[in-house]
Design a protein around this nucleic acid. Structure first.
Length: 400
RNA sequence: GGAGAGAUUCCCGAGUGGUCAAAGGGGGCAGACUGUAAAUCUGUUGGCGAAGCCUUCGGAGGUUCAAAUCCUCCUCUCUCCA
């Protein structure tokens, strides 16, 4: 097979390439003409936090860039006003232009931790949609039928379950499809849930007499809860902006079944190496914790370097394996006696007096390792004291 | 446009005048057990220095000693007919 090496790289951690032969042809053409391929990935600046699940396709884009191709990031300032209906059962609120701009800036900052800036092109949907009139919109819409959309699981389910489905949400795939025409993409990246949208791009390009893009689909990264896909709204995500300790801890909290999955999609490790790890894990001779710690190190070092990863691991072991206190923690200076409940609430260790009382009642609060049992207690540090709530909330109290 | 159903706490969902801060489940949090995993068990899950009081059942008014529950108007959603 031609371009075997390239295809191996592209296929790593990819769940589907549609159609595969077309991609080989494109690579071939690019090689012959010296023209880089245009690799598209669209983002909706609806939020600003990027998590490592988002980065699975971004990482793939980087691999394409390393092979000499151009990454084109589409800022979906129009689609953001719709909110991707894929996999959602309710619509999203629209955003203002200011918010979109801010989110987009922050978003780019985060994905440049992975991408090669010199080979990245950033395009806004408003460049082309901003100029369109109703006649153009109708023309785009006429390319698709309702039946096509109802064949799509997301739309059908919402329709059948009697949930609201706005007309504008049906526009989402149409807009995304036209983006491919506008930027003349050769390949579009996305998670598998994007299959419909990305394939719509092929249809749209065909209508515009353009070569059709190839869909390169990445698997969906599961969230740290191991139950649902990683998503911000579910709170089961590892953010790019999380600090090393947070990242490390979050990785350690994933269920064991996800270890290999994360190795595959969230690290740069070689597939052969991952195979080896998988065998070790299956043999059951090594404590999965050891393997998970390696995973955590790999992920942390990807964003913060090796040194930080080792530090995060030491800290983790210190707190959770040896049950010691962290090396640094927020501090608070206490000038006078303070009621324990008020202290917990004021320091935001607990969100309300009620929660503070609950925590005490449940034996979750301790000072210097001694459980607090009396919720009327007043606190005044003799020198320094460590206040602990639950397993991971710490505060150093200093006599003021 | 016509007819009907509906909106309850983080989510789903019960509740048709006082016994309702509101059943049950999910999720979350905490404790035990652990490897900060999973599973399991237990507790807890509006606010207030806790007595009692205050705010909360789509929104605004009203009836009543008393409203998630009854009435009026409004907003939104769904189903059927066109």
């Amino acid at each position: 097979m031609k371009f075997e090496k390239e295809m191996k790289i592209i296929k790593k951690g990819t769940s589907e390439i549609i159609p595969e032969e077309a991609l080989i042809k494109k690579l071939e053409y690019s090689h012959k003409t010296g023209k880089p391929l245009r690799i598209k990935y669209g983002i909706d600046p609806t939020g600003s936090d990027v998590h490592i699940g988002h980065l699975v396709p971004i990482r793939k884009m980087r691999e394409f860039q390393d092979l000499g191709h151009i990454g084109v990031i589409i800022i979906g300032d129009f689609t953001a006003q719709i909110g991707d209906p894929t996999g959602r059962d309710s619509s999203r609120p629209a955003l203002t232009h200011e918010q979109v701009k801010q989110n987009a800036d922050r978003y780019m900052e985060q994905i440049y931790t992975v991408l090669d800036k010199s080979k990245t092109e950033v395009r806004w949907q408003s460049e082309w949609f901003g100029k369109m009139g109703m006649a153009d919109v109708l023309k785009l819409l006429s390319k698709f039928t309702l039946a096509q959309f109802l064949a799509h699981d997301t739309f059908r389910k919402r329709y059948e379950n009697g949930l609201s489905l706005g007309m504008h949400e049906l526009m989402y795939p149409v807009l995304q499809a036209y983006d491919s025409v506008a930027i003349q993409s050769d390949v579009e990246l996305g998670a598998t849930e994007q299959k419909f949208n990305i394939l719509s791009g092929r249809d749209m390009q065909r209508y515009f007499n353009m070569p059709e893009q190839v869909a390169v689909l990445s698997p969906i990264l599961m969230g740290t809860d191991g139950k649902q896909k990683m998503s911000k709204s579910l709170g089961n995500y590892i953010a790019v902006f999380d600090n090393p300790k947070e990242k490390y801890g979050k990785v350690m909290s994933i269920p064991d079944e996800l270890i290999i999955n994360y190795f595959n999609y969230a690290t740069k490790l070689d597939p052969d190496e991952i195979d080896k790890i998988e065998k070790e894990l299956k043999a059951g001779e090594i404590n999965p914790k050891i393997i998970k710690q390696r995973l955590a190190r790999e992920i942390v070092s990807l964003y913060h370097g090796n040194e930080e990863a080792v530090k995060a691991e030491e800290e983790f072991n210190r707190i959770f394996s040896q049950n010691k206190i962290p090396t640094d923690m927020p501090e608070m200076i206490i000038k006078e006696k303070i009621w324990i409940i008020k202290l917990l609430k004021d320091t935001k260790l607990c969100s309300s007096n009620g929660e503070a009382r609950r925590m005490i009642k449940q034996n979750a609060v301790s000072i210097d390792g001694e459980k607090i049992t009396n919720s009327n207690q007043e606190i005044f540090p003799e020198n320094e004291m460590i206040l602990k709530v639950g397993k991971r909330r710490f505060l150093k109290l200093i006599k003021g």
